[in-house]
Design a protein around this nucleic acid. Sequence first.
DNA 1: TCTGGGGTCCTAGGACCC
DNA 2: TCTGGGGTCCTAGGACCC
Length: 447
Amino acid sequence: MRREPSILHLDLDAFFAAVEQRDKPSLRGKPVVVGGTGGRGVVSTASYEARAFGARSAMSTVEARRLCPAGTAFLSPRFPAYKKTSELVMGLLRELSPLVEPVSIDEAYVDLAAGGHDLSVAGVTALALRLKETIAVATGGVTGSVGVGTSKSLAKIGSELDKPDGLTVVPAGDELTVLHPLPVRSLGGVGPATAERLAQVKVKTVGDLHRLSLIDLTTLVGQAHGTGLYRLARADDDRPVVTDREAKSVSAEETYARDLTDPARLTLEIDALAARVGSRLQRSGTSGRTVTLKVRRYDFTTLTRSQTLPHPVDDPRQIADVARRLLGGVDRSGGLRLLGVGVSGLSTFMQGDLFAEREAAESVDPSGPDAPVTEPVPVDPRPGPAVVAWYPGQDVVHRELGSGWVWGSGLNRVTVRFEGPRTTPGPVRTLAADDPDLQPADPPVWT
DNA sequence: TCTGGGGTCCTAGGACCC
DNA sequence: TCTGGGGTCCTAGGACCC
């Protein structure tokens, strides 16, 4: 918590719907719902006119259609238009301060202290009013709600208090007065589950929360969450405004109009999702070691399966290979309504390793330097009860054996470590690339 | 014709290492 | 040989946010 209200939070009002109303004047003043328009679509954004009829974000579009009157516009999102407007607004924020943290396409924090502004209440109020006006003019009528406070959480709560097109400045010293009457749901990180748990011990407002001891709170909602809420209830928040956060994962998923059962179709869809993820990874110059498959079944039960590889991947084919194999281990009976493919454990470097990897593949691949490096080559490191699936240039992929595990690593040598019950002595067996024991063996049985 | 898509962070257990 | 604690990695799931 700072001694002056120097953090500003901007939240653009009903952003997607506002851009649509700006671009299509006939929609102004009318209910507009932006989101999936198919049978399984949900609402992304409802204009304030549509909210008056009960339409809400995350509601199924079918439900919104039931609530809204004839003449309501139901539109599919036009992300490029939103992105363009968002970038315009973020640019205006960067004129205020070099420290701007975009939270999403329609939301950002600004550290006014880094911009050399008058940080008095009158000063930041005037600044915020000017900003709102500038945004409305530059965007052609998109409005935003602004909060200014001594911390991120207070700024964010401020922008929520007066919507749409509002402004709330919380002066230093007023934090608890503002905070305590609010429902606990106002705090970031308190969703339906946490609110329910708190309600069971008669905690409804932030003031109620303030009365809980740290021990009671962490027992109730967990260590990290508990300490976080304990501090937020005391306006104790020193999180800095961070300009660029590196992405930690990249994923793509799709809910299908009809549940999928056909294996060929499933493979096709996995390939398409992997292609989307791979191309985004390649465009951003990253790759990741963990591939995750997400599946939602006909009955909405959702599960994930993941595998961490020895090396980062960004190639759609490799991603798809892993995802397809993971799908093989999932019960598909009854049909799947959603598939998702993701890559996490991202790393930026890669470049320096390319040469070494190619060299490793060449020195080790019996079929020559131009052989594709993505096809697994089964090998059998004899003696021992092991069958290993070996990817040239990618080290070794571990496989479960009858009674133990095998794991490989190293660039141009294959390390096989036997764990668990085994019949051969020695914890580690290292095979050089030209070891005669590295012989093609029976294809491994993929699950 | 209930329930999207893109993310982040946390927890918990097992394996493994020191 | 027994006991044990701490740290890290991996997997799966859940809560939450916009």
